[in-house]
Write a protein that binds this DNA or RNA. Structure first.
Lengths: 102, 102
DNA sequence: ATAATACGTGAACACATATTCATATTATAA
DNA sequence: TTATAATATGAATATGTGTTCACGTATTAT
């Protein structure tokens, strides 16, 4: 591609991409998503596994849910969260592998 | 993988991964990296193309350089920056494509 | 040496964000 | 209805971050 027909990024794309990476830029959210890689899990179970308080986990899950990176289902009083974006989860897995083998 | 032998992330990996995504979590840095996708470019040229002041671009480039996402070469008074991490640039490109076709 | 050009750096500021605390909501059980 | 359990939410706070300003450093030209 030459300099003349360089395609700059539109605002909407820029915002969406940066928001998605922002979700992956925090250690707590990475740990949560990593837990959900091949299983669904309740809020309290996530909190227990990662030694975080419940409120913190709820806040982070809301963040991820707003970006449609996770989804949930209710069963009685318990709410189970699971992944909802294969592309992002694949990128996360790749990056963890890449960082580990270094 | 069962619950029992779930492999949790070590601190070092967690930090490295989150730092890398943090680099991609800011619109300005995304625009800079996008500019450098298939060409090297001087600091002032980047600033001009993206309508940013030179100091801002320098700060962001230092951030990216510390993470070894970009490298530079000097030619007289001018310093040319270019990409230095194929894996990250590939992830960025994929994510831009994914966001664009949506 | 002096001036001019390109880039880097530290401080300061405004703003965003992660976490905690207290409390509200929702659903089950007694 | 009352109590208990699971989760969500809003406020508060501490810390992090992006940008700008003023100035410093490095290189070239005169």
């Amino acid at each position: 591609m030459s300099d003349e027909n360089y395609q700059s990024l539109d605002e909407e794309t820029l915002f969406l991409v940066s928001q998605t990476f922002k979700a992956l830029a925090d250690p707590t959210r990475i740990r949560i998503l990593h837990l959900l890689f091949n299983q669904e899990m309740s809020v309290s179970n996530i909190a227990q596994q990662l030694d975080l308080n419940q409120s913190n986990v709820s806040h982070q899950l809301r963040f991820l849910k707003n970006l449609r990176l996770v989804k949930y289902r209710r069963d009685g009083k318990t709410i189970y969260y699971s992944q909802d974006d294969e592309h992002v989860m694949k990128i996360l897995q790749q990056s963890i592998d890449h960082a580990t083998h270094h």
